[in-house]
Design a protein around this nucleic acid. Sequence first.
DNA 1: AAATCTAGTTCTATTTTAGAACCAGATTTG
DNA 2: CAAATCTGGTTCTAAAATAGAACTAGATTT
Lengths: 152, 152
Amino acid sequence: MVKRISLSEADCPVARALDVIGDWWSLLIIRDAFEGVRRFSEFQTGLGIAKGMLSTRLRDLAERGVLETAPASDGSAYKEYILTERGRGLFLAIVALRQWGEDHLYRAGERHSVLVDRANGDLVARLELQASDGRVLAWNETQVRKAEAESG
Amino acid sequence: MVKRISLSEADCPVARALDVIGDWWSLLIIRDAFEGVRRFSEFQTGLGIAKGMLSTRLRDLAERGVLETAPASDGSAYKEYILTERGRGLFLAIVALRQWGEDHLYRAGERHSVLVDRANGDLVARLELQASDGRVLAWNETQVRKAEAESG
DNA sequence: AAATCTAGTTCTATTTTAGAACCAGATTTG
DNA sequence: CAAATCTGGTTCTAAAATAGAACTAGATTT
């Protein structure tokens, strides 16, 4: 064989994104980070992930600029893992997955966590895709335009 | 060891979503399906995926209701893989990943594919999260409210 | 200073992945 | 219609990733 395939040079931004966060654990780690989790042991017990896996995932995400480490905010000698600007950019991807999961992966009456507006506790609105003029676009009203060849 | 951990009964919709499509290939298969790819060999050559992997991925996605098979539309005896309603629901998740990839994973001047409005070829608008009253919400203006215990 | 906690690393068994080789049935070509 | 080729797989193997247990060093608490 060879190595696991790399998508890091793909023309398609979706492929490049998946190259960074397209494995089982990364988005869950990032989800927890959005909820304020920062310490190794918090991630570990919260996710139920093996420590070795967590260790390599945190290192990879830091190397790829999604997380960064900082001295622990409680003054101890340990460190914390914090989302970078790049990492925070994944917020809507996680919201979109949440919305899909809510819509399609629960049986009637089954409870799940929800995302609310901190200001008043209301549910957030559903995500939608708009055209440049504000019309809501369905999937089949859009099209992927391939990258033109780079002209030097 | 045991098996790879299952998230299919998680309280968090993000976790359940990742249980279904949280591996390297699934979202790329689905992305291609949104662009009209339907046949085994089209997926295979387009993605450069091993046939064995593709075979199991397509079967899994079909079992989980993301894809369904149908007789080939060209009248041949082969079959096609088509997105179900559930599968089409992943559109915004892919758009969100695309947006993140575009924002963070290309060097200046590097070309990539873009998503456009089929009606006029314009770029689609950026996704944003709104509150119930239409205010745009940033990640830190939201909060996850855990599922209440099911009361029987 | 002993005990415990934190954040790992290391080790092993199992599973997954990539890719090549093979195959049967469908389709096309001569 | 027979041979060649195409389609959509399955099977096999080697390499890599994963899960989990055991171990560890340094920090913190008792």
